[in-house]
């Protein structure tokens, strides 16, 4: 790992000043991706600005019909939150199967979403639950946030402060978990609120996306039968040593049906 200067600001304003003053600086949240990246020298920032000391960025609350999760809330705190379990149990389940327990004590929802790893779980949740990414500048709807492989709508001087999830009537998350890494080979979050159905997919493509054909079919009939002939479009999906794109396309269909059955 190349060396860098480390900063631990106590406020969001202080962090924003630091990042605007230092062109090669990087923000660190839980560090579960960034630190391994630095070890491999795939990145060499001049400065690391650690958000862990900003208390306002942590915690879970219910605000009207939404659950609001602070960006620096770790996965274990989401998985075990009484508020999340009571209102969006599918989200608590998702947080509880990220990585392993030690990773869940460090990794954060904001870090996961800022990184937008194609195989991360939270992007699937934000897509499937119609979440909103709140930053120091604006609110970004799920549909506008994920742009491509490790690419999001975030600007350089933009920090995620919280993520808002509308409480669905029904929702479930199903994941084909890579047996060694725990990452999603494919993960599908299905939710239903009134007439609105969303199917968010992670792991399968360059970034999280929705299955609109499935959503339309499920809006007519929220049953596994309604989507029995639907699967992902292999041409748009990733192939790697873990899975071909065709297999991922197949998994999108299987996991969506399992999620509908569970929701």
């Amino acid at each position: 790992m190349h060396n860098f200067d480390y900063h631990a600001p106590k406020s969001l304003d202080a962090a924003l000043t630091m990042i605007s003053d230092r062109e090669e600086a990087k923000i660190i949240a839980g560090g579960m991706t960034l630190l391994p990246t630095l070890k491999q020298r795939l990145a060499a920032p001049s400065d690391l600005i650690d958000l862990a000391g900003i208390a306002d960025l942590r915690g879970v609350k219910k605000d009207g019909n939404e659950i609001v999760i602070g960006a620096m809330t770790c996965h274990n705190d989401v998985a075990t939150s009484d508020i999340v379990k009571a209102n969006i149990p599918a989200l608590a389940k998702l947080a509880g199967i990220i990585g392993d327990p030690a990773v869940r004590h460090r990794g954060t929802i904001g870090g996961s979403l800022a990184n937008s790893d194609p195989a991360a779980d939270y992007p699937g949740a934000v897509m499937g639950l119609n979440g909103t990414i709140v930053t120091n500048k604006r609110s970004i709807k799920a549909d506008d946030y994920f742009l491509g492989l490790f690419e999001t709508a975030l600007e350089r001087d933009e920090i995620i402060t919280s993520v808002r999830f509308p409480i669905p009537e029904r929702a479930a998350y199903q994941k084909f978990r890579h047996p060694a890494s725990g990452y999603a080979v494919v993960g599908v979050m299905v939710s239903k609120t009134g007439a609105d159905v969303r199917v968010g997919v992670t792991g399968a493509g360059p970034c999280a996306f929705r299955m609109s054909e499935m959503e339309a079919a499920l809006a007519k009939s929220f049953t596994t039968d309604a989507i029995k002939d639907l699967k992902g479009n292999a041409d748009d999906l990733l192939s790697d040593i873990h899975s071909t794109n065709e297999y991922r396309a197949h998994l999108v269909g299987v996991l969506a049906r399992r999620a509908v059955a569970e929701a």
Binding site: Y6, G31, L35, P36, L48, A52, N76, A102, H105, R106
Partner: peptide, 19 residues
């Protein structure tokens, strides 16, 4: 490398000493 930091298990190879 698991140790406890403020009572919680973490992997000490993936945390900076300054943290």
């Amino acid at each position: 490398c698991v140790v406890h930091v403020d009572g919680k298990a973490v992997k000490s190879c993936t945390m900076l000493a300054v943290q």
